[in-house]
Design a protein around this nucleic acid. Structure first.
Length: 302
DNA sequence: GGAGCTACGGTCCTACGTCA
DNA sequence: TGACGTAGGACCGTAGCTCC
């Protein structure tokens, strides 16, 4: 059973929204690639665990806060009073561990993901006890990318390598477990404790006036040319999208990047940048949002 | 209170897509 | 190919807000 599905994080959505509008430096480009890759890895793991959903309750991408410690869990599976956590890494290439430090293929030190797993395990166990659940917590560090290899790591750690993944899933699938009422109660409790991310420390600085205006294709993030009749056509990736869909997407992007700004026809018209008539924008807003006020003071909200 | 500004809506015309 | 429907563009009027 799946009771919480995965969606791109707000930070990833904001980065995607900013990418075509802002000149990213190398660090920012790498960070977006890292987030995209991470998300793709998580989606791939979700696909692998689909067969387990019949006998386990799954919660994906849950963020919890405890004693001012915020921690995010890529995936959780609960059954027969046991809670599995999965930290999914989509690392690629040859990584080496020296003196408990992790080195990427280009010899940069990366955060030790085992420490993250241990921290999550400890905080989650504490949370479960506080809430009165007797479930045991078993944490796993999953490396999903088949092009990943880790050298010089001691054995006996809760790591699942790409070559072991299918057997690992098969092992979980053959375990004689079932979803108990207590498992459901725990899943619902964790779902109710889930919070939205609160900090986006790695976002580049941006300002409305300096951002490039336009509607970016959701496929390749390149700006559309003006619409042909009622739809946009991306010359780069051949994707086609209705003007209404594109405006709604731009509206969500604008609200995500500028949550305190009022949504007006003119502002969205300027933000989209490709329409010749504001009425196209107004029509979409009127059809999909509620209007407050009139004239210069009017704005829309959902 | 009036001028100026901004936003919305009405009307007409044109362009484009669909269908018989 | 022509009729029809729909969307977009231009122009203008109206309404509401701000500022003096």
């Amino acid at each position: 059973m799946l009771i919480k599905d995965r969606e791109p994080s707000q930070e990833l959505m904001m980065l995607r929204g900013l990418k075509p509008r802002l000149h990213f430096n190398n660090e920012e480009k790498n960070y977006l690639d890292y987030k995209e890759k991470g998300f793709q890895g998580e989606l791939a793991f979700d696909k692998l665990t689909e067969p387990l959903r019949e006998k386990m309750v799954f919660l994906n991408d849950v963020t919890l806060k405890q004693n001012n410690n915020e921690y995010q869990i890529d995936s959780m599976a609960i059954a027969s009073n046991k809670l599995h956590t999965f930290e999914v890494k989509n690392y690629e290439g040859d990584y080496i561990v020296k003196d408990n430090k992790w080195f990427s293929p280009n010899n940069n030190i990366v955060k030790n993901p085992l420490l993250q797993v241990q921290r999550t395990d400890a905080l989650l166990t504490q949370l479960l006890r506080e809430k009165g659940f007797r479930h045991t917590v078993e944490s796993h560090l999953i490396f999903i990318n088949p092009e990943f290899h880790l050298y010089d790591i001691p054995s006996g750690l809760p790591i699942v390598y790409p070559a072991q993944l299918n057997r690992f899933i098969e092992m979980l699938n053959t375990e004689p477990v079932k979803i108990t009422p207590s498992d459901m109660k725990l899943a619902q409790s964790l779902l109710s404790l889930h919070i939205n991310e609160s900090t986006y420390s790695n976002l580049p600085n941006y300002d409305y006036h300096t951002l490039q205006k336009g509607i970016a294709c959701p496929g390749c993030l390149k700006f559309y040319s003006p619409p042909i009749y009622t739809s946009f056509y991306c010359e780069s990736c051949q994707l086609q999208e209705s003007t209404e869909q594109a405006v709604l997407r731009s509206m969500e992007e604008f609200q995500l990047l500028f949550p305190s700004e009022k949504l007006t026809t003119n502002r969205l018209f300027d933000w989209c940048g490709v329409f010749k008539d504001k009425r196209t924008i107004r029509k979409v807003l009127q059809g999909n949002c509620q209007q407050q006020g009139h004239g210069v003071s009017s704005y829309f909200f959902r």
